[in-house]
Design a protein around this nucleic acid. Structure first.
Length: 448
RNA sequence: GUGGCUAUCGUAUAGCGGUUAUUACAUCGGCUUGUGGUGCCGAUCAUCAGGGUUCGAUUCCCUGUAGCCACCCCA
């Protein structure tokens, strides 16, 4: 290290020590959402609001912090999300609480707690908010991430499933992303039971079970359904011959699933039947689906969203037996996909006119004019914090305004104000009392 | 949680045992003390942290941290 360098470094450290300060950085897997990023957020949130309105879903937000027990019960005490990834801790009163690892349970809780079964069914709701999982971070995967969550309670028929899938489908399509829907039915608790017996029997066969990977040897006992989505080569090969859930559906479940698919065909929704699709949460039954990006070019193959039916969950969470279904989709992942596809964003909001001031008295007057123009619906830029005209016009230029108003001592004493055309550089002096009219006149001409 | 790759000004980068650590954009100042956009001049700003090897480390090694990639899982 050179001497100069060393000296500088020591100075910096000394400075920090003397002041008693240090700098901090974000926690791992956490992100700040900066100004430019918000342009994407606005786009996505607007699409969510528009579609929710169109399909009749209303917004409902619940707290990010809830009782730990609630997630253990709903998402499943054995699920990875609950056992390995949840941020849970004791609060100051000693209560076991958790930051939500997913959003659905909170919405179910709200449905039950507010007695929504007494309202006209179905109840259709959506929420946009943060969820937390202590995962190992990667692109599109953060410890605090945001989901759009859409749920429908009190409708058992296939139209409910279809409307949700359609919502998800249109959401991505209208954001110009090429996605496909992976869909499957995992039956109800009755027919799934007999299916699982068949499945376990298949895998326990002496010709197969010794070859299974380590994880699958556990799965066969703990959660046999998950045998199906193992990525190990041997296990993938083995599952080709395995009995499929769709063949074991009972009459009710089969009829339901067939109807869902018929509707989707009718509506022209591009879907893939995936007999091995199972989801990571315990509460699903019948229809399950995932949204994946079509682009084969990207090696990254992350689900943008997923959901399904959970007809038992409301009762399981202490409510009246209520059929329900829903889905969640990742905001960050959606934005990542939009960025990777280079989908152009709308231009930022334009500012119509800038007001510059020179000197204390004109600053006061300029602030009043700013308010007048603002109330008249004109979008006005300003930099009252700086006094030099140079700085102010620089800012005006950054904002891309068509006209700048300049108010100095001279204008103020004459009762006038200067209007500068930023393209031509032509400046005119007009009556201060007619500022608004003069601005409006010029803006109208400029806009044609 | 497991394995791999990476880490230089705000951003994007060059250098790879001895340099005044490169360049561009951005930022700030000046040319122009009441005038922006293009021009010219100048300035500020970085080797992720800690240890080791070495006469000497930004460069090599180890550990930590963070990001990325694959897996696990999922959004």
């Amino acid at each position: 290290m050179t001497k100069i360098f060393e000296k500088k470094k020591v100075e910096k450290e000394d400075f920090q020590k003397k002041k008693g300060v240090k700098s901090y950085s974000r926690l791992r897997g956490m992100r700040d959402i900066l100004f430019d990023e918000y342009r994407y957020w606005d786009l996505v949130i607007k699409k969510a609001n528009d579609l929710s309105r169109a399909y009749g879903f209303k917004r409902l937000d619940t707290p990010v912090l809830e009782k730990l027990e609630m997630y253990e019960r709903s998402s499943g005490k054995s699920s990875d999300i609950v056992t390995k990834e949840m941020y849970s801790f004791l609060d100051k009163s000693g209560e076991k609480v958790a930051l939500r690892p997913e959003i659905t349970p909170g919405l179910v809780r709200a449905y039950v707690e507010h007695g929504m079964f007494n309202m006209p069914q179905p109840i259709k709701m959506f929420t946009i908010g943060a969820a937390f999982r202590h995962d190992k971070p990667q692109a599109g995967r953060y410890r605090q991430f945001h989901q759009l969550d859409v749920e429908m309670f009190g409708e058992a028929g296939p139209v409910a499933d279809v409307q949700l899938i359609l919502y998800a489908y249109n959401f991505f399509k209208e954001l110009q992303l090429d996605i496909s829907i992976q869909i499957n039915s995992i039956g109800c608790k009755d027919c799934r039971k007999s299916y699982l017996d068949k499945l376990v029997k298949y895998y326990k066969d002496r010709s197969r079970s010794p070859k299974l990977c380590v994880d699958c040897k556990k799965r066969i006992i703990k959660n046999p359904l998950r045998l199906l989505d193992c990525k190990e080569e041997v296990c993938v090969a083995m599952r080709a011959e395995a009995p499929q859930m769709v063949d074991s559906l009972d009459d009710g479940c089969r009829e339901h699933f067939v109807k869902v698919l018929e509707y989707l065909d009718e509506l022209g929704v591009n879907y893939n039947l995936d007999p091995f699709l199972v989801r990571g949460l315990d509460y699903y039954n019948r229809t399950v689906f995932e949204v994946v990006l079509e682009e084969a070019s990207e090696s990254r193959q992350m689900a943008l969203g997923g959901g399904g039916r959970y007809d038992e969950l409301v009762e399981f969470m202490g409510g009246r037996p209520t059929a329900a279904c829903g889905f969640g989709l990742g905001i960050e992942r959606t934005i990542l996909a939009i960025k990777e596809k280079n989908i152009p964003l709308k231009q930022e909001e334009v500012t119509d006119v800038f007001i510059a001031q020179l000197g204390e008295t004109s600053k006061r007057k300029a602030m009043t004019i700013f308010e007048d123009l603002r109330r008249a619906g004109i979008s006005v830029g300003q930099l009252f914090a700086k006094d030099s005209l140079k700085h102010q016009l620089e800012e005006a230029n950054r904002l891309g305004v068509r006209f700048s108003l300049i108010l100095g001592q001279k204008e103020l004493s004459d009762g006038t104000i200067m209007i500068r055309d930023m393209e031509s550089g032509v400046q005119e002096v007009v009556d201060l009392n007619k500022t608004r009219q003069e601005v409006e006149k010029r803006l109208n001409i400029a806009k044609g």
